[in-house]
Nucleic acid binder design. Structure first.
Lengths: 163, 163
DNA sequence: TAACAATTGTTATAAGATAACATTTACTAT
DNA sequence: ATAGTAAATGTTATCTTATAACAATTGTTA
């Protein structure tokens, strides 16, 4: 398998599959996946690393499309609301959701060097946090778990915790 | 105990104590807690809720101090580097660290309604994430765990998960 | 097809963060 | 003491991220 210089670790999930699933989910929910929204989702899935709102805007303009920042942010809000994408708060970027059918709080491994993101969904983490919250009578609305570090490729041959 | 309208749940830790400890830690490390840095830390600790960089800047100017955004951000960088404060990425705000002596990744319960923050440090959460990362040959550099929700006071008498 | 709601476009601006360089302050070695 | 140096702060400008307010368009429904 040959890799392009820009994507040393391509996403496991297929953009086409993600878009198909998005169509189905939106139809089922009576949500309108308009051309703009679909295109924004496509852009996000087509890029090997998460994109900022303004990077998405630039790509939309490459399509010849009009519109300013609000256009993008509204599309992103829709996609976030449908659970089709996640926002990585630590980097102000957006990434496609790998399990859009089950509502969940994303857990992410973010590579500092190449920007590549791996999405986890470890129920134990979620439960632990929920337990901590409950013990403090705190009602959980959303969880944000982002681990910053270096992915295997960017670490090269290094052994973990040895250097 | 009487509460001011602005702080329905005051921080458990005492600002004075936090500043004293900061002095000690910096001295021990040979780090210079200058007047500006000390004042920024004091401002952060004196507020019942986390503050944005620009809110801190406004308060510095109330002191009669000169300086622009870089002045604040540099002080914040120093304090972050010393582990004396945390940055909440989901809100772009800064809050005092309750365990500045032990290096750790903060875990936070953030109230959506009043902005109040509770800091956890559950080693199990950290270990779980580290295990997930290690299983993927991912080297962990930092962890960000932020739980957004509603604190007991803002929930009033509601029972958890019943409304 | 008129009326209404939802979506998108447009303009302006707010909010968060940093780059580049000048000035001041603190430390070091004579 | 004081010149030289490094660290910290001040200053100006600019960049990135995000939203407010309103106009135009598109889609839906009666």
């Amino acid at each position: 398998m040959t890799l392009s210089p820009d994507s040393c670790h391509p996403l496991s999930s297929d953009p086409r599959q993600a878009l198909e699933q998005a169509e189905i989910l939106c139809q089922r929910r009576g949500a309108r996946l308009t051309e703009l929204r679909r295109r924004v989702l496509e852009i996000i899935w087509s890029n090997p690393t998460p994109l900022s709102a303004y990077a998405i805007l630039d790509l939309l303009r490459d399509d010849g499309r009009q519109g300013g920042p609000p256009t993008v942010y509204r599309a992103l809000d829709f996609l976030l609301g449908q659970g089709l994408i996640h926002r990585l708060a630590s980097l102000n970027v957006f990434t496609g959701c790998r399990q859009p059918d089950s509502r969940h709080n994303g857990q992410f491994l973010i590579c500092r060097d190449c920007g590549q993101v791996d999405e986890l969904s470890n129920p134990a983490v979620e439960e632990l946090l929920r337990a901590e919250a409950t013990a403090r009578q705190f009602e959980v609305l959303a969880q944000m778990v982002e681990v910053l570090g270096r992915c295997p490729d960017c670490r090269g041959g290094e052994t973990p915790y040895a250097g």
